[in-house]
């Protein structure tokens, strides 16, 4: 699935959040979106799932305009993992992941759908949580459950909004390896918002940096994660080295203006 974002502009009332956003993501690519807080990353991801209607411009999924697709059409192609999911009533983890099977419910038997839920739980190694109450899980466990739900949706595009922010380092790597594997082996297109520059450097085919609602860098890790970019976007001085041929950033201090 190819995603094209053309001249996207988004505004809450008069305040422009996104301006003139253009980029293309090809099938099977694993793309990270980076940028400071308030840069418009989550807004961009929500626009890409059609949750927010953009003011100008268009997003195309394999040539189909997102604005003309129904919620079901979008859900068949795109799975979205929001920053926070909170169910107001106690739902078992198994039932939570089963929600991802909504559009498969009538196509496959109950048994097959349950089996797919189990597979998704296993991919994130959380099958032991299946009968737990979702609301009583830790932040990191919740994130994994929602990622499992997105996998159960079996879409070709996966959008992750800071999906690993609450996980410990081991589970971060576990999820990143899983995601990388999905894109490399199964051709699933992954677009994720990350905060950790080094994880982005290590796992992305392409990095887009948003700053103040505009794209300020777009390319592979080497092109994008430079001293100059990090200085101008984040306002920090850093030292950049190379680990396994990928840039590795060591933040040093706040840049004095």
């Amino acid at each position: 699935m190819e995603i094209r974002v053309n001249n996207l502009e988004f505004a809450y009332s008069s305040e422009k959040i996104l301006k003139d956003i253009n980029f293309t993501v090809v099938k099977g690519q694993c793309v990270s979106i980076l940028g400071p807080n308030g840069a418009g990353k989550s807004t961009l991801i929500k626009c890409m799932d059609g949750l927010l209607k953009c003011k100008k411009g268009e997003i195309e999924i394999d040539g189909n305009k997102l604005s003309e697709m129904s919620r079901e059409d979008i859900a068949k192609k795109i799975a979205y993992v929001p920053q926070v999911t909170a169910s107001i009533f106690p739902l078992k983890v198994f039932d939570m992941v089963l929600l991802g099977r909504r559009l498969h419910m009538n196509l496959k038997s109950k048994k097959e759908n349950h089996l797919e839920v189990l597979k998704a739980l296993k991919k994130l190694s959380i099958e032991h949580l299946a009968m737990k109450n979702f609301n009583q899980l830790s932040g990191g466990q919740k994130q994994k459950v929602v990622i499992a739900r997105a996998l159960a949706q079996e879409t070709e595009i996966l959008l992750l909004d800071e999906a690993i922010s609450n996980l410990d380092i081991r589970h971060q790597l576990e999820v990143m390896e899983l995601v990388k594997n999905l894109s490399a082996e199964f051709g699933i297109t992954v677009i994720m918002i990350l905060h950790d520059l080094n994880i982005a450097s290590r796992f992305s085919d392409k990095i887009i940096i948003l700053n103040d609602g505009e794209i300020s860098a777009n390319g592979d890790a080497k092109e994008v994660l430079t001293k100059e970019n990090i200085s101008s976007i984040y306002g920090i001085e850093s030292y950049i080295t190379k680990i396994e041929d990928k840039p590795h950033i060591v933040p040093l201090k706040i840049r004095k203006i």
């Binding site: 129904s70 068949k76 799975a79 979205y80 929001p82 999911t85 169910s87 009533f89 739902l91 929600l99």
Partner: peptide
């Protein structure tokens, strides 16, 4: 209802109007 009670964006992204 399980979708709606899990949040509006969650429900929409799972295909619920």
């Amino acid at each position: 209802l399980n979708f709606i009670s899990s949040g509006e964006d969650d429900a929409k992204s799972l295909g619920v109007n």
